[in-house]
Computed example of a mutant assay.
Amino acid sequence: MSNKQKQDEQPLTLREMLQSVLAAALGVQSSKHRLRDFSRGKPSHFIVLGVLFTLVFVLLLVAVVKLVLHLAGL
């Protein structure tokens, strides 16, 4: 079995999943990576990472708004 075939059968690494979630959130996911995600990734992992990303994003937005309002003296 070649190295390429072995790599295609292994589950995605955390780094690969994070890159896919970030790319999908920005709307720039390539077809090649999307196909890789569907063939090697587990939906539950992407759901958990997507929910965590959304939570962090919302908390970051809230923090930025609070900081801007504080600096504006409101």
Rank of each mutant, 00 (worst) to 15 (best):
L26R: 05
L69K: 09
E16N: 03
H45A: 10
V62R: 06
N3T: 06
S2D: 13
S31H: 01
R40N: 05
L35S: 08
A24Q: 02
H45D: 15
A63S: 13
T13F: 03
R36K: 08
R15L: 11
V21C: 01
L55Y: 09
T13D: 05
V65F: 13
S20M: 02
K4E: 09
S39R: 15
N3Y: 02
V65P: 13
V21M: 02
H45K: 11
S20I: 01
L12T: 04
V48S: 06
L12P: 03
H70M: 12
Q19K: 10
Q29F: 01
T13R: 10
R40P: 04
S30Q: 03
P11S: 14
R34P: 00
K42R: 15
L22F: 10
V58N: 09
A25S: 12
M1Q: 07
K66T: 12
V65L: 14
F53I: 00
S20N: 02
A25N: 06
S30W: 00
S30Y: 00
L12K: 03
P11W: 12
G41I: 01
L49D: 00
F38P: 01
G41V: 02
E16C: 03
S20Y: 00
L18G: 00
E16H: 02
R36P: 02
A63L: 09
L59Q: 13
K6L: 15
L26P: 00
K42V: 12
G27S: 03
V21W: 01
F53R: 02
P43D: 13
L22Q: 09
D37Y: 01
F46C: 08
L71M: 14
V64E: 15
H70G: 13
A23P: 04
K66L: 14
L26E: 05
L22C: 05
P11R: 15
D8T: 11
L35I: 05
V64L: 12
